[in-house]
């Protein structure tokens, strides 16, 4: 017994038929984030509240700066994949879906570049 309706067949509804790239990308960034989260959070926890000079000194350390930049690149990619998964699950209608996905791309892109640029500027001399 065929449960698919004629309309579903004509409109090509059903499985998405692609998404492997997103699936793999989400897992690759997840694995990279295991060490990155640890090495990003520890100096942040240690020095948050220590004032401007201490913060600048911490992120002028090449190790902290490189970890921080990597963290922002990878986590905004991971966030984009994750939010996209939630959006395609809960947002219905072509217009709303397209706008949400575009907004997600822009938001996570701006957030990532802001983080990378800020740490680079601090590291290169405030």
């Amino acid at each position: 017994m065929a449960y698919r309706t004629d309309r579903q067949r004509v409109e090509g509804l059903g499985t998405a038929k692609d998404g492997t790239r997103e699936w793999v990308g989400q897992r690759v960034s997840a694995m990279a984030l295991i060490p990155l989260v640890i090495f990003f959070v520890l100096p942040l926890a240690r020095h948050l509240g220590g004032g401007y000079d201490e913060m600048v000194a911490v992120y002028q350390n090449p190790f902290n700066a490189i970890v921080g930049i990597l963290f922002f690149i990878v986590i905004t990619s991971h966030l984009r994949h994750g939010l996209q998964e939630v959006i395609v699950d809960y947002v219905h209608g072509k217009t709303a879906l397209t706008i949400s996905l575009l907004a997600n791309q822009m938001f996570t892109g701006v957030l990532g570049v802001t983080g990378v640029f800020s740490i680079a500027k601090i590291a290169f001399g405030g």
Binding site: L48, T76, G82, T114, G115, S118, I119
Partner: peptide, 27 residues
């Protein structure tokens, strides 16, 4: 938690951006 952490990341990004802008913004 994944969606909620967006807020935490925005706050931390703001903290870094403010430090890159200068001492007053950082404060």
């Amino acid at each position: 938690t994944g969606v909620g952490l967006t807020l935490g990341l925005v706050l931390v990004t703001w903290w870094f951006l403010a430090a890159a802008i200068g001492e007053d913004a950082f404060a």
